[in-house]
Amino acid sequence: MTGTAPRTAPRAAQRQRARAWSPSKGGLLLLAAPLALLALFFVAPLLWVLGQSFAAPAGPLDTYVRIAGDGALRYSLIYTFQTAAIVTVAALVLSYPVAFLISRAQGRWLMIGMVFVLVPFWTSAVIRSYAWLVLLQRRGVVNEMLLALGLIDRPLRLANTDLGTHVAMVQIMLPFMILPLLSAMRGIDLSVLRAAAILGANPWRQFVNVYLPLSMPGVGAGCVLVFISTLGFYITPALLGGSSPMIAVAIEQQVSRLLDWPLASALAAVLLVLTCALFMLYERLNRRLAGAGEAR
């Protein structure tokens, strides 16, 4: 009775593939409407951006050549990367202990922790950037307090500096780091730490050799998420400024002030490709995270 062995004259009708009813046949039908929406209002505009980036009158690669040749734009790209890296590392360092403690909290403490993370997460970036402007401007809260305390005698320049912008961006990005870390840490079975302790590991070794590796998928996912989001950050850098515009701000300036759509599209295409590559990385990490969760 093996699958491919010739059988004694099965009736012709039985050898045809059965035209059977299948419970999951409606899947593609259900997907039609969402896919149509995505095709028209997501995929088409992105393709248009890509097309437009090669549509400069001087030649298909002209815009990219101009970006490479324009010192300010080149610096803007580098600056954006630098900022994304700084914000990611800072967010990770600040988030890890917080996520660890929330992941082990229960009842009321867990709720308080989650409120502290989720409320900023869902508060508009416009509002939060505005708050930072209020804090950091020349006659802002921070300067007034430092003056009142006598620590400085002249207001410091905080807004429009890299430091001020980074401090604000890190605060806005923290929830994007804490949430993936939390979901990874919640999946860690704490009995492995007890096992490590019994085997003679002190708390530091338990952390480095057991806990940290197990939380790595969350670290990876959080870092990619924060990095991607910072690459495309517009609101905070546009409001608070810094030593150079971020890419998103540069794109907006090209379009609304210089009306240079091909150049803006080329910058957007660079951002799009980078984001896509990082998003795929994120998907892989997420899958590994989900895999680890299922194996539990």
Binding site: Q14, Q16, A18, A20, W21, S22
Partner: peptide, 10 residues
């Protein structure tokens, strides 16, 4: 029951 469509047969 109808949950699994058979490949061949009746």
């Amino acid at each position: 029951a109808g949950f699994v469509p058979p490949s061949y047969g009746a």
